[in-house]
Design a protein around this nucleic acid. Structure first.
Lengths: 204, 204
DNA sequence: TAAGCTATTGGACTAAAGTACAGTTTTTCG
DNA sequence: CGAAAAACTGTACTTTAGTCCAATAGCTTA
């Protein structure tokens, strides 16, 4: 397996050298224009203040996997990198053993992403994908809403107007409003939009 | 590295044997009660109609990573498995080379999840987690909104009233309304709630 | 330079949402 | 059985949202 490191200057950090001594450093501007080789993994260093959206696309268009190296990457950056198509994101100064693990995983078709982060993300997405299930409303608003209130809340969370809800539940629009007033009180929200965000897990 | 395969019967499929000849098969009920060994990876076969929530917890509580083997696992199943804490999910009948790759990746701390699926999931979650980031609105509504419209849309998606938006952007409430009218037209939504759902990925 | 687009705002509405009083009926539970 | 809770609805608002006309100013581009 061949690697190359893409950076804004020709520095070869000691941990990189220890992990992959045969790798070479390629200037980023050159790499973005096709320089360097056809490698298995292209490690791209992202420096403070730099944007993935600016740096990564040209590299992702090339053959080989791309791994982002960043100083203490936060969740948002990891997310963005993976979303953009990178195969992983790890610390610029990670120990050689870790870099080797990343290389092994990525080189074998896996993705390098923190287990906790992925589970959080998947958990959250699963919740959102299944928000049409009444149970999810129960989860968010445990025990405080009556059955009817939950029905109304769910329909609001899905975007329905009072009139639509009234038609759907065969009640007066006036009743919908009454339920909503109660729901806002119980959930600590002020309007349907805030309620929707809360139910859909987008706001506390 | 040591593996064991957890199944409801003592079958040792040929692809499993080719990929990891030294592995043994352990009955699932026994494995859920502590039988088998302390292995690096525990492969758990999930049969049709079986539920991860029933099968997996006892195995996940044990030392070692767990990979789910299922017949042509769909996205929902993979999601559920990863969300529950499995390190991967792949086809029961996958080629030995694939199984070996899975083993390498998982054995080295990676996760085995389809790249396309992960990016979809991350993309969706990233949008939601970063819905305060203008770039995410661009992703959802490519090219159709002006910069100002995007700012307004984003604030609406976060639950703000017209008045709040006007204050935040130092413009008249009247202007907020004008922008919103344009935004609804461009996005094919009828009101702020629908817009919010669309931006947050909860509606098409 | 003219046209097109964006940002801003006004006037004047209509429509929908949300609130505060009130009441009746039905259901549940001690 | 009686009290409380839930479901339903009315009256009468106020507030917010959204629409349809219009206009001006600034910027960009063919």
């Amino acid at each position: 397996m061949e690697y190359e490191i893409v950076d804004t200057e020709h520095a070869f950090l000691p941990n990189w050298r220890a992990a992959m001594p045969a790798a070479r450093v390629v200037l980023r501007t050159a790499a973005q224009n096709g320089a360097g080789g056809d490698v298995s993994i292209r490690w791209c260093r992202l420096r403070a203040g730099e944007s993935i959206a600016v740096v990564l696309p040209a590299l992702l268009a090339r053959k080989g996997k791309t791994v982002i190296l960043a100083d203490e990457p936060g969740d948002a950056l990891i997310l963005e990198a993976l979303s953009a198509g990178a195969a992983g994101c790890c610390n610029t100064h990670a120990a050689p053993e870790v870099l080797q693990q990343v290389a092994t995983v990525v080189g074998n078709g896996g993705l390098w992403v923190g287990q906790n982060l992925l589970q959080q993300l998947i958990g959250r997405t699963a919740r959102i994908l299944t928000n049409r299930n009444p149970a999810s409303v129960i989860d968010v608003l445990p025990g405080t809403l009556s059955e009817r209130e939950m029905q109304v809340a769910k329909l609001v969370a899905g975007g329905a107007s009072n009139k639509e809800i009234a038609n759907q539940l065969s009640i007066a629009e006036r009743t919908v409003k009454a339920h909503l007033t109660a729901i806002f009180d119980k959930t600590g929200t002020r309007d349907r939009l805030q309620l929707s965000l809360k139910i859909n897990g987008l706001k506390l």
